[in-house]
Design a protein around this nucleic acid. Structure first.
Lengths: 333, 333
DNA sequence: CCGGCGGGGTATAACGTTAAACCTCGCGAT
DNA sequence: ATCGCGAGGTTTAACGTTATACCCCGCCGG
C-alpha cells in the first residue's frame, strides 16, 4: 500500500480511504490511486486489515465431516444464504477424533471468524464449557447443549416418532432403529432419534425390543449396509427399518437387498434428514425433513443478533419436522 | 500476551518463547508462564501471528459447490491427509456464478492460506491469468489450464473411453452421454468426457450421434433424471448411458426407471468419479475411479514442493483411471 | 474583516505477534 | 586473570492496515 501511495504521490491514508470508499477524497485523486493500484497489481492484505479492525467478513462453519451429505448440503445452504449479505463462509472439519475437534474449537481458531456455526456431534458439555469465547456462536445441534449458547435444534424425537408411526401405519410390527442407541450419556442425535422410535412404539402399545436397536460407529452407508444384512442373516426378524440418517437408510436398503428382502414389500424403510439424493434412489426414500431452510434462516438470524449485540440473551430454537413419503414405505391402510 | 507477561513477571518475548516451545527459557519460568496463561485464559491471536510470520498453518480448498458429492469427498480426503502434517484445511465455495468465483479467487483471499488447492470448473484462462499470486497453488482440475500452474488432471478422456468401451462390450449400441457437450470453448470436464465417449465409438467403427449428447446445466441428480426421462419419452432410442458424473448416472437410473426402462437389462448405465454412495445404490453403479487417493497425494506433494521452494517448476500430473464394474452394466460377453 | 466550517488530505499511533540483536551472568578453559 | 561461551532473558522494530486527531485552505455569513 505504501508503494501505491508513493507512486500516486499521496499518503497511505488516502490510498486506504480510496480503497474503502470513504469520503473526503477528491475525484481526481481517487482516479489516480485506482490507476496505480491496477498498475502495480496491488491487493489488500486481509490479515492486516483484520488485525486492525477485528472484522473479517467471514463466518465459519464447523462440521464433523465434510463427506457426510447432511453437512455438505448444510454448508451449501448456508453459503448461499450468506452471500447476499456480503459474508463469506468457510468450512472446517472438526474430525472424528477428540483431539482434532478440540483443536478446531480452540478459541484461537474460532476468533478468526466474525461468527461461528458449530455443528459438532461428538462434543460434550465440558468441552463447550471450557471455551467462553466472545465470538458469536450458534450451535447447530443435534444434542442438548449448555443454555448459555444460542442454539438451533432439530426435532429429533418428534421426527423419529413421526417416522415410526408412519411405518406402523403401513403395517410394520418389528421396526429396527439402525444407528440408534438408548443408553447414551447425553441426548445426542442417535439416542434422541431412538427415543422418538421408542415413544412411538410405546404409544402404539408395543414393547421396544432392545434387539432392534442396532448401534453404528461411523454412521456410514457401508457400515449400515453390512450391519443390517448381518443381523438378518443372524435371524433377526424385521419388517421396518428406521435409519437414523438418510445415508444409513440408503445403506439399509442395499443391505436388505443383499439379504434377499425387498423394499417396501418385505421391509419398509424410512430415513431422517431428507437429503437431496433420497428422492432419487430406487425406491425413493421416505424421510423426515428437518426443515433445512428454516433452520439455516434461524441460525443466521441468531448469529446476526449476536453480531449486532454481544450481550443478546441466548435463544433456543427447535425446528419443525415433516414426513416426506416416498416409495420405500407403504401408504397407511 | 502482555497481561500474561506482566502477571508472570517476565517479558513479552519470554511468553512468546514459552508458547512456541522455543529454547532458552528456564524450566521454572516456563511453568510459571503456563500457569498464568491458564489462569487468565489467554489464547494467542492467530491473526497477529499470521501478520507477523506470514505463515498460517492453513491450506485452502476452493470448490464450486459444497454439495456436489465429488467435492465433499475430496475435501474430506484432503483434510484427512493434511492432518498428520499439522496443517488445517478450510474449504470455500466459489459458487456457480462468476462474480462469486472471482471474489473467492481474489488474490487477497488466496493469500490468507499457506497454500491453495483450486478446483474451479467454471474458471476460464483469463481469470487465472489475471492472478499471479505468490501463494503456492495447485489446480485440481478437470479442464486444461495455463502451463505456469502446477496441476493435477483427471484422466477424463481415457476414463470416459474406458467406460464407453465397457458399455459396448456389454452389448450396447446406442450410448447416450448425459451431461456431455462437444462444442465447448475449452476442454472442460463435460467436453473431455464426451470426447472419450466419441473416441471409443470411433474406435469401434460407430458414428457418434449428436442426438446422444445430452447437455446439462447444473449437473444435478434431479436435472439428470428428468433430462433422460424426457428424451426417452420423446422417442430417443438408448441402450446405454454414460453419466459424466456419478450423480448424473444416479439420476439417470431413476429417470430410466421413470421411463419404464430397467437397468441394466434395457439400458446399461455407467458413471464417473466412483463416489462412495455409488457402490450402495441399487443396482450398484459401474463407475470410473479417478484414483482419488493418488490424486490427493500428488496434489499435496506439489503443494509442499511449492511451499518449500517458491520457484519450483510447474508439474502437470494426470491421474490414472480404472473402471469399477458393478450391477448397472452387463459383463462383457 | 473575522470566525467558522467543510472539503481534501496527512501524521501518528495503535492492533498482537515475532525475528533479530543484544545484554548479563556464571563457569570452564587457557 | 582473562576470555569465550552458552543459558536465560530482554529490547526494539517491524508485519500492513485503519482510527483518530490534526492541518490547511477557501469560502460564506455576519
Amino acid at each position: 500500500m505504501s508503494d501505491v501511495a508513493r507512486v500516486a504521490g499521496v499518503s497511505l491514508m488516502t490510498v486506504s480511504n480510496v480503497l474503502n470508499g470513504r469520503p473526503n477524497v477528491g475525484a481526481e485523486t481517487r482516479l489516480r490511486v485506482l490507476e496505480v493500484v491496477d498498475e502495480l497489481g496491488y491487493e489488500i492484505n486481509l490479515t492486516a486489515r483484520r488485525l486492525r479492525t477485528g472484522r473479517t467478513g467471514t463466518v465459519g462453519l464447523i462440521v464433523p465431516r465434510f463427506d457426510h451429505q447432511y453437512y455438505s448440503e448444510l454448508a451449501a445452504r448456508i453459503s448461499d444464504a450468506l452471500a447476499p449479505e456480503g459474508l463469506h463462509l468457510v468450512v472446517e472439519q472438526s474430525g472424528a477424533n477428540r483431539e482434532r475437534e478440540l483443536s478446531a474449537l480452540s478459541l484461537a481458531r474460532l476468533q478468526q471468524y466474525d461468527g461461528v456455526l458449530l455443528s459438532a456431534v461428538g462434543l460434550d458439555f465440558r468441552d463447550l464449557d471450557r471455551i467462553h469465547p466472545d465470538v458469536p456462536i450458534v450451535l447447530l445441534g443435534e444434542q442438548d447443549v449448555p443454555d448459555r449458547y444460542h442454539s438451533i435444534k432439530m426435532g429429533n424425537v418428534a421426527g423419529a416418532r413421526l417416522a415410526t408411526e408412519h411405518l406402523l401405519a403401513g403395517g410394520a410390527q418389528r421396526i429396527a432403529v439402525l444407528g440408534g442407541r438408548l443408553d447414551a450419556p447425553h441426548l445426542d442425535m442417535a439416542s434422541s432419534r431412538a427415543q422418538g422410535w421408542a415413544d412411538a412404539l410405546d404409544a402404539a402399545g408395543l414393547d421396544p425390543d432392545p434387539q432392534l436397536v442396532i448401534p453404528l460407529e461411523f454412521f456410514s452407508i457401508a457400515e449400515a449396509r453390512s450391519a443390517i444384512a448381518d443381523r438378518i442373516a443372524g435371524g433377526l426378524a424385521v419388517d421396518g427399518v428406521l435409519g437414523v440418517t438418510d445415508e444409513i437408510a440408503i445403506g439399509a436398503m442395499s443391505g436388505l437387498r443383499d439379504a434377499g428382502r425387498t423394499v417396501p414389500d418385505d421391509v419398509q424403510v424410512v430415513g431422517f434428514d431428507n437429503l437431496r439424493v433420497s428422492e432419487h434412489v430406487l425406491p425413493g426414500l421416505t424421510s423426515v425433513d428437518p426443515g433445512h431452510d428454516a433452520m439455516v434462516a434461524e441460525a443466521l438470524r441468531l448469529l446476526r443478533r449476536q453480531m449486532e449485540d454481544k450481550g443478546a440473551a441466548p435463544e433456543h430454537v427447535v425446528s419443525d419436522v415433516a414426513l416426506v413419503e416416498r416409495g420405500s414405505t407403504r401408504r397407511p391402510r
